[in-house]
Each structure stands twice: as C-alpha cells, then as structure tokens.
C-alpha cells in the first residue's frame, strides 16, 4: 500500500463541513415540512377527492414512488429548463425532495386515515364539531401518532437523499465534501469524514425523534 493518508486538510475543513451539515439538516427539515403538508393534502384527495383530483393525487404519488429520487431532482433541475424555468440549486433540491417526500408520506397518511375508526368522526360530528374541526382536532392528531415512526424514517431518508444535491451543484454536506475533496485531492479522507458526519446526523435525528416521541405520545 503506497498511499499515505493525510488528515490535516480534513481537520482544517471541519468547520466548513459542519456548516454544510447544518445546510443538509435545513434542506431535509424544510422539505419534510412541505412534504407533510402536501402529503396530507394528497392523502385527503385520494380518499375524498372527486375524479380529476383523485387522479392528480394518484399520478403524483405513483410518479414519486416509482422513479428514482435523482431523476426527480434532475427533472426539476434540467427538465424545467426547457420551459425557461431555471431554479437555484437549493430550490432544485427543495422541490425534488418535497415532491418525493409528499408522494411517500401521502401513502403513509392514507394508511393512517384508513386506520382511524369511522366512529371517531361520527362522535366528533355529533358533539357539534364541523367537518374541518373534527379532522383538525380529532383525526389528524391520531394519524400523526400512528405514523410517527414512518415519519421519522422519511426524515432520515430526506437527510440521506439531500446528498443528491451534490449532483445538481448544491453545496450541502456532500456537495461541500466533493468540492473540498477535489480541491485538495484527498478524496478518500474527505468522503470518509462525510460518511462519519452523516452517520452522526442520522443518529441525532433518530435520538431527537425518540425523545420527542416520549414527550408527545405519553398517556
């Protein structure tokens, strides 16, 4: 083995990597929030929408679930260029991840809605709540409780998927790593550092979610 490892460039670049890791978390969290809102809407459209709305939601969900996330990112990045829409790298990642998250979460939400017994909504309505009130105060909190773990998994996926931003020029953890690696020619060292940081990020996300779960869903 004629290779000498040089860790100094990595240590010198650690602050940059940490900042990039924060960008990764931001992008993942933001795409998750948008994904939850869109996913809820899509799930409700698939359950209660009229024909055209049902079709729209179904097409969205099936495309998001049956094509690679990277292709979806490329579509927002390069495909839309055909119409003269040029998004910034951050917007490409945000749109792509939100689109993907919404598709996956819609199915989770749909399963959650189907698992709530009908009697719950009947009871809410008979207590004088309006339809939207009963959804907002009775159904949706229970759905969130049911799909909390899939939701956490999706957030972890979002963190991992945001690494695709590297291929559309977004400087999150992977993009920054690649930039630094090709600047210093220490490819292996930098990618190993990125792998370690991603591992820690995922553990932090899972740990936070576990603590939050104990706080939120304790009876």
């Amino acid at each position: 083995m004629d290779y000498t490892f040089h860790w100094r460039p990595v240590i010198k670049a650690l602050p940059d990597l940490m900042e990039a890791a924060l960008t990764t978390l931001e992008a993942a969290a933001l795409s998750m929030i948008i994904g939850i809102v869109l996913g809820l809407v899509l799930a409700l459209l698939r359950l209660h929408g009229n024909r055209p709305l049902y079709l729209f939601a179904t097409v969205w969900v099936e495309i998001a679930r049956n094509t690679p996330a990277l292709l979806q990112l490329f579509f927002f990045g390069f495909g839309l260029g055909a119409f003269g829409w040029h998004l910034s790298p951050f917007m490409i990642v945000l749109c792509g991840l939100s689109f993907n998250n919404a598709g996956y979460l819609a199915e989770n939400f749909r399963g959650g809605f189907l698992a709530i017994p009908d009697t719950q909504i009947k009871a809410a309505r008979s207590l004088g709540m309006s339809a939207s009130q009963s959804y907002l105060h009775i159904i949706i909190p229970q759905v969130f409780r049911l799909i909390y773990h899939p939701l956490t998994n999706q957030l972890v996926w979002a963190v991992l998927m945001s690494s695709l931003g590297m291929l559309v020029g977004f400087r999150e953890l992977s993009g920054e790593t690649q930039f630094l690696a090709s600047n210093t020619f220490r490819l292996f060292e930098f990618f190993l550092a990125a792998a370690v940081i991603y591992y820690l990020l995922v553990k932090i996300v899972l740990g936070t979610s576990y603590l939050l779960c104990r706080k939120l869903f304790r009876y």
């Binding site: 972890v156 998927m161 690494s163 695709l164 990618f191 792998a195 995922v202």
Partner: peptide, 11 residues
C-alpha cells in the same frame, strides 16, 4: 443504512 448510498459508492 445511515450513510447516503452516493457517499458509500464514492468512498
């Protein structure tokens, strides 16, 4: 399962 596939590949 905790490191992005793209990083695994490049690594």
């Amino acid at each position: 399962r905790s490191v992005p596939l793209i990083i695994q590949l490049l690594l």
